[in-house]
Design a protein around this nucleic acid. Structure first.
Lengths: 293, 293
DNA sequence: TGATTTATATGCAAAAATGCATGTATGAAC
DNA sequence: GTTCATACATGCATTTTTGCATATAAATCA
């Protein structure tokens, strides 16, 4: 009796996805294929792995156990891939870099250009996202992150110390300077709960006027004078029409880090990339630290 | 980039087998399929996994690392199968039992007959061999073994205490009894190095006349008067024409055990089988202990 | 040296797996 | 209630994988 390991993998993705369609999308196959692999495996094992409810496939206890085995197998798979990447020539293959979207244009793009000039045959894959991609999975090889997310398998190096300040349109900043009793209309991200504590000393009248789920949109709103926002120095200073609100002082913020998986610490491609990335950010460090008004 | 786990498995079997043909035989596919899976994987990884010498496929470092990952995955596979067997109904599926060949006919056959009567829908697979099949792999579910091979994952119960004695044809036994100074011509298995120490007190003149690689052949030789052999009680006493050599006393020997994997300790099918096996051997215990002459 | 065994390589046909199109059912939103 | 989105089932054509037959090379042995 032989079990097809691809079928075991399919069970995992069906359990994780919850429906044939999602599992198929993740696996890169048609969803009918998922259904057929499952039924093939169920026949081979002579055991039901999923209850076929109208709402979708629900894993039985046996199905969950199969998924558990698949997870263990996937760990081997991921570990293997890291080894193979580490063993590869520095000048071939593919490198996936993830970074916060707003860092890509002004900074990472130049690093990539330089790296590409030095290693023209390495394909570069950019994933501009704030979500923490899992470096344990082969979702990305190098991550640039604000704050040093702790994970025992990852190694990190600090790229730049960072500060934030309060930015507004020039007009609004002037108005606030003129009238310390004015009410500050703060703009923040969705998860913001209250105005910055340090600001209340100077402007006790404060309210959160608008919340945004997107940093670019928020910046646009600041440019248009809708209110004041606390922004990283490198963003506020580089955005046309924004100035620091006087009186409110900059504050230290989470630093910028580069993270890689421990297994890839010495991989030629990774070190080659870092050798360009780190000096570049060191040179740009003043932009992240900024200056007080 | 997606790696086919069946291809990874194939690498493992090619590394273990050393040639396409052997790997294919183990995997149950044509050897050309093995060759094509390997080249497909090498292309996908953009790395050479084997050096194609005329003498066969020799794994590169990367190939060995792939095999290592496959080994880890296979452990998951085996563990999963044990779980699934343990979860199965006692009255369905397949049960693989391994035992020393000479125990099968006189003892195990009856146990199987009784088990089959109680559970007619369970397929029974007998592997009559002295080689220690690996119960960690799904090579066998239940092993009957002489001696309790220690393995942390296995659980064992003693089926019977056992003794050995010195057997010969009736004629030869008589001759030896008449002449204590006679030279005993011993018959033994290939790995025998010297006559039984205890026998030298009574018959100091001793030599190993013939060695055999097969126990049945050895017994045949004893029947034909070629010499004296130390045999388990249950064999010597049950063989036509053999008698214990007087004077030489029986000795304790390795006991007979039944072994199963710890994961299957409570599996319905396994316990059902043991519930028949153990009482049967308990009843037959005197045959394994035997009697002194 | 010549026969035999054990390797791998490859063209071609059979078999298996997959994708697509279509049909049906269910629950949520309006 | 009607519409829409989502989910599964299945027949059919296509693609992919596999097995078989055949060819070739190296090593072994009489």
């Amino acid at each position: 009796m032989n079990i097809d390991w691809e079928d075991i993998k399919t069970v995992l993705y069906l359990v994780k996805g919850g429906s044939l369609a999602k599992a198929g999308a993740q696996l890169g196959v048609n969803y009918t294929t998922v259904a057929r692999r499952i039924s093939r495996l169920e026949n081979a094992l002579d055991q039901q792995l999923f209850l076929k409810a109208k709402a979708g496939y629900i894993a039985t206890e046996a199905g969950l156990r199969v998924a558990e085995a698949a997870e263990g197998m996937e760990k081997q798979d991921h570990s293997l891939r890291r080894y193979l990447m580490a063993a590869q020539e520095p000048s071939t293959g593919l490198l996936t870099v993830t970074a916060p979207p707003l860092l890509v244009g002004p900074y990472l793009a130049k690093v990539i250009k330089m790296f590409n000039a030095a290693h023209p045959n390495v394909g570069i894959n950019i994933r501009a996202t704030n979500s923490t991609l899992d470096l344990n999975k082969p979702e990305a090889d190098i991550a640039i992150r604000v704050s040093n997310t702790p994970d025992e398998n990852l190694v990190g190096q600090r790229l730049a110390k960072q500060r934030v300040a309060s930015f507004a349109s020039a007009e609004l900043a002037q108005a606030l300077q003129d009238d310390p009793g004015a009410t500050i209309r703060w703009l923040g991200m969705t998860y913001w709960t209250s105005p910055p504590k340090a600001s209340l000393k100077h402007y006790p009248n404060a309210e959160i006027a608008f919340r945004f789920d997107d940093m670019s949109a928020l910046i646009g709103a600041v440019q248009n004078g809708l209110g004041v926002a606390r922004l990283p120095m490198f963003l506020g200073n580089a955005t046309n029409g924004l100035v620091q609100v006087p009186i409110l002082q900059p504050q230290s913020y989470w630093d910028i880090w580069v993270l890689t998986h421990n297994d890839l610490r010495t991989a030629p491609k990774i070190t080659a990339f870092k050798e360009i990335l780190i000096p570049y950010f060191k040179k740009k460090a003043p932009e992240f630290w900024g200056e007080a008004v």
